[in-house]
Design a protein around this nucleic acid. Structure first.
Length: 569
RNA sequence: UGCCCCGUGGUCUAAUGGCAAGACGGCUGACUCUGGAUCAGUUUAUCGAGGUUCGAAUCCUUGCGGGGCAGCCA
């Protein structure tokens, strides 16, 4: 295949999946120039926490690029700091990437796989006079580094002989020295304007148990001395990372060049920021450890496991990732966009049911006592193949409290005294009487139905302004429903004054214990999702048990009435 | 203030020297047995100043604004 043809093919793939972002332009250029022959990327998380929606963007980018260019993408754990990393995190990351729908085949790697090679590389730099063992303490090292505006000064240990360095480094590895007493540093330039180039630490002493290598090592390579070489070893062509590593690129290239090994290209893009939440492992970890949420997979969390439990689909996450694009400018994507993509996906696929989350009892006064009948309902108006089902109707029903107002404002179309509405798939009913308790609380509505309107059609052609959902009291299934809202009540809690914790949305979780569901909603397992008509999309939570269903609200439906109410206030 | 990066509607992204486009959100209307969905319409943008050019969001200079970097974290 000619170069021209290859390029054309890639162009077509591109149009189908992602937009033509700057990384693809760089890749196309590299391919044209013959710098690389095929595209090989990698997703390199540190197993020190759960993955979040920001990682999803990176995963979709890296694996998506591999798909687009018919290349490959590795999964690699950047596990060079045993004090923060755990097997639990490794397991969750593997599950999350799979769930998103990506496959690394047999290319699951760990930076710790390369510890021996990395050690050899370090020795090679010492032998070239490009690395030295430094006895400065952490604090002294900081003092020698200089500041943003002043140059640093050389370490007194900088000119040690190669033999001494080799000896000391060997003894570091052998465990002769306590933590923090020595480091191996690269000999670059203490006056370099880029602080990363001022004799960066390559190895530190850390007598810690590593989740994979156990106690084999007591010295561990730093990120900068690991990442590029790992990319090189795996034959990565394009090493894509976030913006904060931009200043590390010169060092990335320096190690590769001095080592004389294969050179990948590092490209940086802007990490995802999402409104009404935080996307930083550190802060998410805080929310978990401080008990602000129930765990990493709390459905309010922007973690992949939280989003999954919330009921988001991998398809919607991928569509979202493709749409937000890839660029270098800092941005804050609107949470509404993510919500849009779940709704779009679920609208197409979710079967509809009737469920009442805040029940108000309705008695149909002219319906015969003890009688019931089955009414036909459409399962999914978006999908003709989804068929129909039957719903029981009887004299006593529940409707949503929000669907009745004793003194309705303008533009409220639902039930009110003397007003007629349609019960979805059932009959027209009219509210004749409002029953209250001693506190003035409405406890029951007494309504009459029109038998001629069975199925929801009026033979005389008269119209009603609203159709509301309902459940037959005698046939209802009880359930707990958890209503989730945004985790924070402001767009960007980190940009607000004071502690970001104080902007946590106190109403981010509302538990409804006494929900009434139509019978067809009984007996579903984890993984089941549906739409409760007029309310939103819901899924079964893993907390469900044989006797008690627990549903999570994934997303509400679009709700113009809510906007009208806001404006009326 | 040393080095690096970035400034396009309310938000995100496109336009690669040649009509500033799309998506989300908002608004209006049509349709509707979900105030859903769908459809149609609409609203709002190139940070400023110079320069190069027939022509600049795009190239150059400069100012302003935002972000990142002084871990033996990644």
């Amino acid at each position: 295949m000619s170069e021209e043809a290859t390029k054309q093919d890639n162009g077509e793939e591109t149009a189908a999946s992602q937009s033509q972002h700057f990384i693809k332009e760089i890749i196309n250029g590299d391919l044209e120039e013959g710098r690389y022959e095929l595209v090989h990327t990698r997703f390199p998380p540190e197993p020190n926490g759960y993955l979040h929606i920001g990682h999803a963007k990176s995963i979709c980018l890296n694996f998506g690029l591999a798909e687009d260019y018919k290349g490959q993408c590795n999964l690699r754990f950047d596990d060079t700091n045993p004090s923060k990393e755990e097997q639990e995190y490794v397991d969750s990351i593997i599950e999350d990437v799979h769930w998103l729908g990506f496959d690394w085949e047999d290319r699951l790697f760990y930076a710790s796989d390369y510890f021996d090679t990395l050690y050899e590389y370090a020795v090679r730099l010492i032998e070239k006079g490009l690395a030295y063992v430094c006895d400065l303490s952490a604090e002294e090292t900081r003092e020698h580094r200089g500041t943003l505006t002043e140059p640093g000064k050389n370490s007194p240990f900088r000119e040690r002989s190669i033999e001494e360095n080799l000896d000391l480094f060997t003894r570091m590895k052998a465990g002769e020295f306590p933590d923090g007493t020595r480091t191996l540093k690269a000999k670059v330039d203490m006056t370099h304007p880029n602080l990363n180039m001022r004799d960066p630490v390559m190895y530190r002493i850390l007598h810690a148990e590593h989740h994979r290598t156990g106690d084999k090592w007591c010295i561990y390579p730093m990120y900068d001395f690991t990442h590029g070489q790992s990319d090189s070893i795996e034959g990565i062509t394009h090493s894509i990372c976030t913006l904060e590593f931009e200043d590390h690129r010169p060092l990335y290239n320096w190690y590769i060049e001095k080592l004389g090994i294969y050179a990948p290209r590092q490209i940086e893009f802007a990490r995802l920021n999402l409104s009404f939440t935080v996307t930083s492992k550190r802060r998410l970890l805080e929310l978990v450890t401080e008990g602000r949420v129930s765990g990493w997979d709390d459905p309010r969390m922007p973690t992949i496991s939280g989003i999954r439990r919330r009921g988001y689909t991998p398809e919607s996450i991928r569509a979202f990732s493709a749409r937000i694009g890839v660029a270098k400018r800092d941005s804050m994507v609107d949470m509404a966009l993510l919500e849009h993509y779940v709704r779009e996906d679920l609208n197409r696929r979710a079967p509809r049911y009737l469920a009442v989350l805040n029940p108000l009892k309705v008695v149909i006064t002219n319906y015969p006592e003890g009688q019931s009948e089955m009414l036909e309902a459409v399962n999914n108006p978006e999908d003709p193949d989804a068929g129909t089902r039957e719903i029981p109707f009887s004299k006593t029903l529940y409707i949503e409290r929000d669907d009745f107002m004793e003194d309705p404002p303008r533009k409220f179309f639902r039930l009110a005294p003397g007003r007629e509405v349609r019960l979805r798939y059932a009959y027209f009913i009219k509210c004749d009487e409002v029953v209250k308790d001693e506190n003035g609380e409405i406890v029951e509505l007494r309504c009459s139905y029109d038998p001629e309107t069975r199925g929801g059609h009026a033979p005389d052609g008269r119209k009603v302004k609203a159709t509301i959902h309902w459940v037959s009291a005698d046939h209802a299934v009880d359930a707990e429903v958890r209503l989730y809202d945004r985790l924070f009540s402001v767009e960007n809690p980190l940009a607000e004054e004071g502690d970001w914790h104080s902007y946590l949305n106190p109403k981010s979780l509302e538990i409804r214990e006494n929900c009434k569901l139509e019978p067809a909603l009984a007996g579903h397992d984890k993984g089941f999702f549906c739409q409760f008509e007029r309310l939103g999309y819901f899924c079964i939570d893993p907390d469900s048990s044989e006797g008690k269903a627990v549903f999570n609200r994934t997303a509400t439906l679009r709700d113009p009435w809510k906007n009208i109410q806001k404006r009326q206030k």
